[in-house]
Amino acid sequence: MPPLRPNSGCGMLNLYLFQILNGLGLGMIYFLISVGLTIIFGLLNFVNFAHGGFFMLGCYLCYALLQLTGQFWLTLLLGPLIVAALAWVMEKTLIRRIYHLPHTFHILVTVGVALILQESAIIVWGPIGKSIPIPEALQGVVIMGKFAYPKYRLFLILFSAAIGFILWLLLERTRFGALVRAGSESTEMVSLLGTNIYKLFSLTFALGVGLAGLAGVLSGPIRGAQPFMGPEVLGIAFVVVVIGGMGSFLGALVGGLLIGLVQSLMTTIWPEGASLMIYGAMAAVILLRPYGLFGRA
């Protein structure tokens, strides 16, 4: 990296600051997706390969609800709720039947669900992606001294940080969270102690998938909605979980931010290789810490 000089360097510095903020926003989206995956796996010992598909559904709901209502705040509320409700119904009717089977069958069923989501999105919204306008209230830039940053992206960082904090409170400070954490240790024991474990499973599944939907709604105005975005998002969620360690809230946060920052900073240095470097970072972490940063052996 060249030494920073006061005149020419200021622009460079701003560029890097810009990309770091972008990386934080991207990282928080990755965090929301991965933490949902991790919570579900922790309690239900179930891997959701349709997670990327639900993210995509979130993006399309952002598009559709904005078209329908024209109100961003309502969309932000309804979008994730619809995704969570769908997940809740799916858990009750389908996922519950296959908990007792090996992981291979969990994967097959959720791959099937992902295919159904993807093809349904194409049937409803067409094979070509939709771009989503930035909501009026959050258009424009925030100016801090010489530095300007898009309002919506700043909102994205703050809002997802707030959601992350609420989620942490929910998991660490409420009865529901205590049950989820206890259930992750021993489902049987929690069940024996008189908790309706099935109700807990449905709620947790809906919560985890709803978080992917929320991430989708939030990132809609930035990257739009495309029918084939599911696999890419699923791949990134796996990378985050592999880096952070499966079942770890902190791991999802650190892993998500790390990947977001790597991807965003690489965009300035080597745009074509930005996505590739995500996986390079993962390989590096795996070499140094085979069980992830916060994972248990």
């Binding site: 891997v47 992981h103 592999v242 499966m246 590739l276 996986y279 390079g280 390989a283 070499l287 085979p290």
Partner: peptide, 26 residues
């Protein structure tokens, strides 16, 4: 890099590495 992990971790690692190949080719 992945064989010492079992079960679902192995699945996730192989998937992530195959994505590396995809983006390399891209």
């Amino acid at each position: 890099l992945s064989i010492r992990r079992t079960g679902i971790y192995f699945v996730m690692l192989t998937l992530a590495f195959s994505q590396t190949g995809y983006f390399l080719a891209y």
